[in-house]
């Protein structure tokens, strides 16, 4: 009897979370899906009508969509490459026996705790500004022409800024993973005459495989939603050069008030994210067993 009683109590305790999350995600998502089949513009109230796949046709035939999709892929791919490769290198470096390891780790992790609007504005003004920015001053000191990063290489600049924020995350996870590497195994390999590279590819890398996958998947989820960094630096420009899918949906909805079109874009973003989420969920699911 007690177990039955406790079981229903357990259900009762889980219920609020389930209900809240249901209201928070499934209901709005259903609304987005519904809107995406409507002609619905906030500037033209009372003109709502069913258009079937009209919004999707409009969105998919908009050149802005394909550019922003391409930008999204380049941005996410670029940041992933920088943070994963850089993160592995830095994690291995910090994992060596060094003086002040704790302090080094604290310094390296710091950028992750900086709010996106701050890091974007600091980079934009104090580093990437061609006149007063530090990078411009350094290049002038060497007699070179200063580069106006955000207008000459806008997407690359965004990649640099966001990578700076996410490199610490990757490093921290790789470091955690490295510290669980069996040191006796490494010593044994060393005694058997395995070189640094052989030890890295045959021992370290396979050991970190799981951490690398997790970093790639989780970063992808978060990076698909990068927004503040673009809003305060380039506003998606010049032209469409830094407009990502997230940013395109934002402009379509809150600047052009095209609810139907923006919803179609939102649904496309959800589908893309779900492809990644599918693999991530499978990996995390395994930890539950």
């Amino acid at each position: 009897m007690a177990t039955l009683h406790q079981r229903s109590l357990a259900r009762l305790m889980v219920a609020p979370s389930v209900v809240l999350l249901f209201l928070w995600m499934i209901v709005p998502l259903g609304m987005t899906l519904w809107f995406s089949f409507q002609r619905y513009n906030l500037l033209m109230p009372g003109m709502e009508e069913f258009t079937g796949l009209g919004n999707y046709r409009y969105f998919l035939s908009d050149p802005g969509f394909w550019i922003s999709l391409q930008n999204t892929l380049i941005m996410v791919g670029g940041i992933l490459a920088i943070t994963v490769i850089g993160g592995i290198a830095i994690a291995i470096l910090i994992d060596q026996p060094i003086f002040g390891q704790g302090y080094v780790r604290i310094l390296v992790i710091a950028p992750f705790f900086v709010m996106p609007t701050v890091s974007a504005l600091v980079w934009k003004n104090m580093f990437m500004n061609p006149v007063n920015g530090l990078l411009g001053q350094v290049s002038r000191a060497f007699g070179a022409q200063p580069v106006d990063w955000l207008s000459q290489y806008p997407l690359f600049s965004i990649i640099v800024i966001v990578s700076w924020q996410w490199l610490p995350f990757a490093t921290l996870i790789f470091l955690t993973s490295l510290q669980s590497l069996d040191s006796e195994q490494v010593e044994a390999a060393e005694m058997d005459g395995a070189g640094i590279w052989a030890r890295f590819t045959n021992l370290t890398l396979p050991h970190m495989g799981r951490a690398i996958t997790v970093v790639i998947l989780i970063e992808t989820i978060f990076l698909l939603s990068v927004f503040a960094e673009i809003l305060v630096t380039t506003n998606g420009g010049p032209g469409y050069q830094t407009t990502t899918l997230t940013y395109l949906v934002y402009t379509q909805a809150l600047l052009q008030f095209d609810v139907g079109g923006a919803s179609a874009g939102g649904i496309i973003a959800v589908i893309l994210a779900n492809i990644v989420a599918f693999f991530l969920m499978r990996m995390i699911g395994k930890t539950l067993d």
Binding site: P28, M31, F227, L245, Y250, A262, G266, A269, A273, V276
Partner: peptide, 16 residues
């Protein structure tokens, strides 16, 4: 399922 709600990109529900 709870985890999957976290995977949903925010723009998917921004408008509603």
């Amino acid at each position: 399922w709870m985890l999957s709600t976290k995977m949903m990109p925010a723009v998917g529900v921004l408008i509603p």
